[in-house]
Nucleic acid binder design. Structure first.
Lengths: 209, 209
DNA sequence: CAATTAGAGAACTCAACGTACTCTAATGGG
DNA sequence: CCCATTAGAGTACGTTGAGTTCTCTAATTG
């Protein structure tokens, strides 16, 4: 009622940003969580910073204070969501280990991480520095994991000694990604079983030359 | 000099679209060629209709008269640029055939077709109808080609009868695409040689179960 | 308490997709 | 040849979303 002469440049008497605000890590986590939910819901191509800000009930400026670009927020949300790469199956059977790993990766690809992979291919991996960061952050890549499984299987006599060549170690992962990228998620279980039984198991039973 | 009272709504006395114009198929081809060049130069993500129009010295409206959306122009340019899928190598050696096919595909991926594949993965293959069109237009896919090579090799006794399972037939193509998409072009020749010698040749020498 | 920081909401600029419009170069038919 | 029609070149426009700037003021700290 008594507001004399403070007209200012824009007199919005209705909006004054009242209300409780989150700060620091609490807000950081809320935004990241909203980003993951948005990615899962609309996919990579249709993911927008505006929508995430609305979902997180945050200001877009708060998003950009933490993440310089759209892709940064997406990748950060995904890194936070990756499973621990140190928990590998050890069933005593090479086939069962390989099946378990590929099924787990297939399930992962059937969520926001799979969507982010599509973005990786167009917006990230074509940039040298970002590609290097991704390779460092995503340590649980297929070839390393398969290397551990094969080493154990060689000791058990299930796989041929010296069968763990670079191209072979990549094969399971490459086939799974191929199916996901070109045919969509979820990768059917009969395909995963086929990859293991028709390709992986016989491939590592054969010596390399 | 004598132009009385025809002021019209916009009197631009300097621009009147003078000059020779192309029509029909000649213009169609010029636009498609410009699209291919632009894709090769700037990649999928940074490809713009404006740039293609400028490169083709055409009007954007002429582009949209023929191709409803950006992705339509990109895909049409790529289809036109695909090699004839009916020309397969037949060297008498399975290894040489496989090497030849993978090297040829690798070279193709090292051009605009590779860039378009990235776009496929984010903007096309997530759409059911467009995905079906792509599958029909790109008939020379890896598994079919490998199937022909393996059938011949089985007859020559180089590959095991019954070794041509679906997952195996996809393997070469999947590994090549994996390397292209995740590590960029060109796929080094030593990788291609490794795919053939470490994976493909032993894999098809082994019976399936 | 006062000063500082940073969060919420709004407004803004720009690029690019896609659309509409004007002027007029080609083409085809009578 | 002339006229009507088509479509091509260039421009302007609306919309969307990335990214930026600004204002107000809720939190935090000393």
């Amino acid at each position: 009622m008594t507001n004399p002469g403070i007209a200012g440049r824009r007199p919005p008497p209705t909006d004054h940003r009242k209300g409780p605000r989150r700060r620091g890590e609490e807000l950081h986590a809320a935004i990241r969580s909203a980003a993951l939910a948005e990615l899962a819901e609309v996919g990579y191509a249709r993911f927008t910073m505006d929508a995430v800000a609305v979902r997180a009930k945050a200001s877009k400026a708060s998003l950009y204070r933490r993440w310089p670009q759209r892709i940064d927020l997406i990748m950060d949300a995904i890194y936070e969501n990756l499973p621990d790469p140190d928990t590998l199956p050890d069933t005593g059977s090479f086939r069962e280990d390989a099946l378990s790993v590929l099924r787990e990766t297939g399930a992962l690809l059937d969520g926001p991480a799979g969507e982010a992979m599509r973005g990786l291919l167009t917006d990230v991996l074509t940039d040298k520095e970002r590609a290097a960061e991704v390779r460092e952050r995503v340590r649980g890549n297929g070839a390393n994991v398969m290397g551990v499984l094969v080493r154990r299987a060689v000791e058990r006599g299930e796989c041929a000694p010296g069968s763990a060549t670079p191209r072979r170690l990549e094969t399971g992962s490459a086939l799974l990604r191929y199916h996901f990228l070109f045919n969509g998620a979820p990768v059917p279980d009969h395909v995963i079983v086929g990859i293991v039984d028709e390709v992986i198991v016989p491939l590592f039973a054969a010596p390399a030359d």
